[in-house]
Design a protein around this nucleic acid. Sequence first.
DNA 1: ACTGTGTTTCCACTGAGCGGAAGGGGCGGC
DNA 2: GCCGCCCCTTCCGCTCAGTGGAAACACAGT
Lengths: 251, 251
Amino acid sequence: MAGNSSTPGVSVASKVFSLLEAFDTQHRSLSLSQLARRAHLPPPTAHRLAAELVAWGALVRRPTGEYVVGRKVWDLGLLAPVNAGLREIASPFLNDLHAATLATVHLAVRDGTEALYVDRLSGHASVPVVSRIGSRLPLHATGVGKVLLAYAPEDVQGVVLANLVRVTPYTITQPGRLREQLRRVHAEGNASTNEEMSLGACSVAVPIRRGAGGPVAAALGIVVPDLKRDRPRLVAALSVAAQGIGRSLAF
Amino acid sequence: MAGNSSTPGVSVASKVFSLLEAFDTQHRSLSLSQLARRAHLPPPTAHRLAAELVAWGALVRRPTGEYVVGRKVWDLGLLAPVNAGLREIASPFLNDLHAATLATVHLAVRDGTEALYVDRLSGHASVPVVSRIGSRLPLHATGVGKVLLAYAPEDVQGVVLANLVRVTPYTITQPGRLREQLRRVHAEGNASTNEEMSLGACSVAVPIRRGAGGPVAAALGIVVPDLKRDRPRLVAALSVAAQGIGRSLAF
DNA sequence: ACTGTGTTTCCACTGAGCGGAAGGGGCGGC
DNA sequence: GCCGCCCCTTCCGCTCAGTGGAAACACAGT
């Protein structure tokens, strides 16, 4: 910034980012003072910068005076590679999969030590699940997470295995047991969970490889109330879709 | 900005926006010099600001040196009301509709004088269509567009009717004919197109009303190769889904 | 009428931002 | 191999854009 700042060394750009970061799933609309507090900026500064953001369309100011994230950010976000590449290519396959099984279908990538849900499809006949598009869930308690973890670098595995948070009574919290499961993911080509993330929900997932036998780029999973009945059928459907997505990814 | 600028009167924030605006559907990844040119900034300035954007995660720098939009922007965009409200609520209905018809399903809102496609579902069995999520198409040549236009304010209708661009030989370009069609949208509760946007594609669409008989918040449409055969069946399915979405929107 | 909270405007001070110039680095032409 | 070209990156002295406390303003609640 220029001049009279109480905290020198902070750039204008970083203040803009602070303002944007003030918004999250729990805070989708903020008044000016909330915004200023959450961004750690004095109200006049927040006011001036927010006005610039509104002018550009990054924020929208409601008649009530509250700020919400604007359409322009959504537009821009659609250009991010996570969306533009993977998601667009996978979309028709997810639809086919959902049409065939009527279960909730998930597409996720690994983001650090979490599973990032890039797309989700669920009809009314599906089990209710916690995940939403854009949400991040632990790698050790979800089907897609276990797949992503199995193919993650050694150091990531280490961090995750050292920190197995319990979510339900069935969550696997013993590093040894999980490591054994990861070994089987490699051997069998799929991972599953039984009420480890949310009670009443089981899942199966398979890796998506860029091209044939290439690196694992994402994971494709499905959530059902019960896995006993038709696990083989689901794995077959998942594999076919994953192969198709992988082939398309290779262009 | 502070100091030595060649074009005084331009704020830092607006330069950040210029950089972000340099990206669009045709330009998803840009080298530094391209970025600087498209943002109308001197290379050193672009370089410095881009580095800040990368540090925050708004941009990502590929090993090749090219910049792409980062995941953080995508994350933020998901918080925009257009996505958070309408899209999440409508998603299961779109899936059900797609499962029932196997056609391409569209959810759109009016953005000025264009139709903004908020969500799109298409399987492999569907007709290929030009629209993508986030794309904007003319109001007069698409099914959802006609619905949105029929319920748009008088001044918007005026602007659109005065500027009917031809897209295919079947596009309606006579204001009188279109106005007659809009009248029928109100009377019959649905709009359709016959190869007016792309050859070989026809569409039907219905309005989505917030609550029962409330204002039109969006339009729900479907694209098929031929409309003659089962228009009544499609309209019925669309109406049911639109009612459901509208009821959910009212909370 | 009074107090408190949130919003907006004002304005004098100053260091953050600026970008031309110059220094690498990579590639293709000859 | 050597040269020329383009792109990327760093440097650095000049200067005005950005700053935020103070104060006015708007509005509930009591």
